[in-house]
Simulated scan of single mutants.
Amino acid sequence: MSKYPRTKKSLGQHFLTDGNIIRKIVDAIPAKPDDCIVEIGPGSGAVTEILLQRFKNVTAIELDQRMVEYLTEEYPDLNVIHKDILEYDWSVYEDQNRPIHVIGNLPYYITSQILFNLFEYRPILSTATLMMQKEVAERIVAEPRNKDYGILSVQSQLMSSPEILFDVSPHVFSPPPNVQSSVIQFTFDKGGLDCSDQHLKTVVRMAFNQRRKKLSNALKRLDAELPVDEFNFDLRAEALAPHMYEKLTARLEQLGTFG
């Protein structure tokens, strides 16, 4: 096997080197051999190699041209796509007649952007098994009235069923990151919301961007008559459970708040 290129700090590359952790991650994917597997940022292919041993339909999306060339040479059966994951069009899988499972060790600096991109296409995805900064994973599963509870918590829990599977030490990466990591699995089993994704995002972000204020003040920029007889706007953003944000947004839509 030819030596793979060195990591690029500018791309946030940290490659897994521990075979036991790699197998543990792949073991966690609830997929059958014929299902479609999409790997985000395969890098040097440490996880990819195990995926190819277990699944027949593996696609790898990689931004680094050096890694694309390396993967193409090393794994002739792998479908390698040279693309920025934030520009990738997941709708290409809409006509697939098999479940789509996503896996990836996400660059820490664009984790949230990747997640929101996946949530947008959740109707065509089955699961996403992702490694990310432990701190971010804890925010995703945080419950109301917790300091970690926020925008990511609400949207993740409304649009999927997230579960932290296990933590990962920095020592199993090359080079080691300066943070602890966690593997978290999103199961896209929630179906559609009672409101539009975009309107939900507007309400949730407005509420949490001023999380120290009462909702009545935080949502003032909506420039709308709030249904004060149906919801308690004296609460702060962190007090509302995810389903209440969905309910509130749906009600505001009925009232014509968003035009």
Rank of each mutant, 00 (worst) to 15 (best):
T7F: 14
T7P: 12
K8A: 13
S10Q: 07
S10E: 06
T17S: 12
T17Y: 02
R23K: 13
R23S: 12
V26R: 07
I29N: 01
I29F: 05
I29V: 13
A31K: 04
A31Q: 06
P33I: 08
D34W: 14
G41C: 01
G43N: 01
G43K: 00
G43V: 00
G43F: 00
G45I: 02
K56A: 13
N57G: 01
A60Y: 04
A60P: 03
A60C: 02
A60H: 02
E62Q: 08
L63H: 01
Q65K: 14
Q65Y: 11
Y70C: 04
T72F: 08
E73H: 15
D77G: 11
N79G: 06
H82V: 03
H82L: 08
H82E: 12
K83N: 15
D84T: 03
Y88T: 05
D89S: 05
W90V: 00
I100M: 07
I100E: 05
G104S: 04
N105W: 02
N105C: 02
Y109G: 09
I110P: 10
S112I: 11
F116T: 03
E120A: 13
P123C: 03
L125R: 03
E135L: 10
E135V: 10
A142C: 13
N146K: 09
G150W: 02
I151Q: 12
I151R: 15
L152K: 07
S153E: 02
L158M: 13
L158Y: 11
E163I: 08
L165W: 05
V168F: 06
P170W: 01
F173Y: 02
S174P: 02
P175V: 02
N178W: 01
V179A: 07
S182W: 09
Q185R: 15
T187F: 04
G191E: 00
D197L: 14
D197N: 14
L200I: 13
T202W: 10
V203P: 07
M206P: 05
A207R: 09
F208W: 08
Q210M: 04
Q210Y: 03
Q210F: 01
K214E: 10
K214V: 06
A218I: 01
R221G: 10
L222V: 00
A224I: 05
A224D: 02
L226T: 00
P227H: 02
N232I: 10
F233P: 04
R236G: 07
A239H: 15
A241M: 11
K247M: 15
L252V: 05
E253T: 05
Q254A: 09
Q254E: 15
Q254C: 06
T257F: 06
